[in-house]
Design a protein around this nucleic acid. Sequence first.
DNA 1: CTGAAAGCGCTTACAG
DNA 2: CTGAAAGCGCTTACAG
Lengths: 359, 359
Amino acid sequence: MQGGIGTVELCEARRMKCSIMNQPERNTLNTPVTLGEVAQLSGVSRATASRALNGREGVKQDVRERVQLVAKSLGYRPNKAAKNLSSGRSSIIGLVMPSEELIVDPYAISLLQAVAKKAEERDEGLMLMLSHDEPTLAVRNTLMDGLIDGVILSSVAVGSEWVEDMLDAQIPKVLIGAHPFRDDIHCVNVENFEATVSIVDHLFDQGLRRIANITGCPSRVDAIERAKGFRVAHERRGVPIDESLIREGDFTQAVACRLTEELLKLEPEAIVAANDESAIGAIRAVERIGQRVPDDIAVVGFDGITFDQGFDQDLTTVCQPFEELAGLAVSTLVSILSGESPPLEQMIAPQLRIGGTSI
Amino acid sequence: MQGGIGTVELCEARRMKCSIMNQPERNTLNTPVTLGEVAQLSGVSRATASRALNGREGVKQDVRERVQLVAKSLGYRPNKAAKNLSSGRSSIIGLVMPSEELIVDPYAISLLQAVAKKAEERDEGLMLMLSHDEPTLAVRNTLMDGLIDGVILSSVAVGSEWVEDMLDAQIPKVLIGAHPFRDDIHCVNVENFEATVSIVDHLFDQGLRRIANITGCPSRVDAIERAKGFRVAHERRGVPIDESLIREGDFTQAVACRLTEELLKLEPEAIVAANDESAIGAIRAVERIGQRVPDDIAVVGFDGITFDQGFDQDLTTVCQPFEELAGLAVSTLVSILSGESPPLEQMIAPQLRIGGTSI
DNA sequence: CTGAAAGCGCTTACAG
DNA sequence: CTGAAAGCGCTTACAG
């Protein structure tokens, strides 16, 4: 360790400082190492140390390396509060989701998990902002408090008042999923439409023609897009649709189960459920009347989370690219915060997974 | 507004300052109001304003009120980074959960939601820390960064290495659920044992005697406690247990479904599932062989989240007091952080909910 | 390429 | 009861 005092001495100095000044106990055992200490031990000023550590240009290579080495060996971790205060960036992003959806919809949970992971990878903190009453206010406040830099929000809530408020609010944001009426908001989205076409095509390929559809909540864009995919797939192949086989679901097992009980009387050969939960509900109904999937009827879903759910059947479905989606959302938000102008809409094509419920 | 300049003038002043100094654009439209501005407009020093706003004693009543009024009318929001830096408290708590559990276990999600709500109510930010590889390290780092003050962790992960590490680490923490071998850690817990006794008693009251049990993961304390409850309930009533009716599950639908298929051959009159997911799996198995719940067999669960899950049956279960649990966890952590010594273990008795699957 | 200095917005002994 | 001042740990023009 060239230049400056040795590690041992500094440690000693720090210990003395602590005991002498009777520092108020911090949350950690040992007082954290500060930039000043790194600088001192590296024999440079705090300014230079800061620049070296933050990859700012204009630092001699050997100096940079020395500082970095010292920082590492000291286990230096920059104090985020100080960094935040002086830089204006907190490096925390908010994840805004409707509180109820989280409970009902495994999709929301998978998304949450993926965003948490990707945020961590980019060294961004993730503040959970489950919206109950006044989410827009809460977000705006948190933003004003300097606690978060911006938010990622799930479009599952698009349509509810608060999301509309939020979209209008001057808050750096990225939507996961699309908004039906607005194209002025950054969003990352999945090809719901084409993916549904391909899963219906898959059923056609099995020789199935009389296909039922349990749609999702009509207020949600993904549901609308999937419903459209169902129709267009038929049109493209010239297969007529029996309108009585199309029923409006709400993405839940319970409703899908009830709807399927009705549908089964019409003897469809397959059921296209708007999501995996609905597919599971459908399968339950089929089993209740003693029939079997896929021998008596094929069932397909959407999302690709049934396996994780501990569901015991190998569902044919479309796998949401959760991690890609989340990664893109995080990086898009970060680039907005950096003053860049990422594309307003970014699409990802999900993957079809053929399972045992359709073959 | 007595003392000091008027609101209009200050606003004017601020606007000028912004435009003249060509302030770097913050994340918000208008530059946030600072303590200095509140103080100036109130005709006091920043020190006094700070004391007044933070409810510190030693401020004349009328001064306090004036400052508070000014702060309110200006929409003052203290900058958290600054507050954090000078006070050493971030007012953010971490919620640590195993990433996988979140996907598999609705219990974890309900807990997450409840903790988010309660943290918000206490004006504590909630940082989500889903643990993948090195959670202890991540938590310790985040703590050292000054980003979080402490953590709440779910005991669903007790037994995994990282939790054990975490428990030993010098991190302010509260466990939700118990730890099998340690009583030196603050935890809030539910009466799993007694609750299970009471739900089995309920089955006895229905005249049922031949009762099966699908347990939870043997590594989890709640599973152990519930399994014990099942046994003790029998002992207390003097009802013999058929050991072949006790099977080890893992809290998932899939496994419970498979186990139930086996159990049904032994013709039990009822199945006590260790959680609602298992109960749902059991019901699926029952329906598959064309039998009905509760006519042919009664099924009960634990957790009380099936209703929200969109499950269409009214399950008899024990309702976890999620909000109480979460509220207690948050307040316990806060009191630890304040240097107080809350009780190490706090128990809550959950409520039995009689549904249509057992009567 | 580097450093001294000012500043981010708050809190808190220390004097009065 | 109140204020001037120092300090929390970092960043960033501004000079050299």
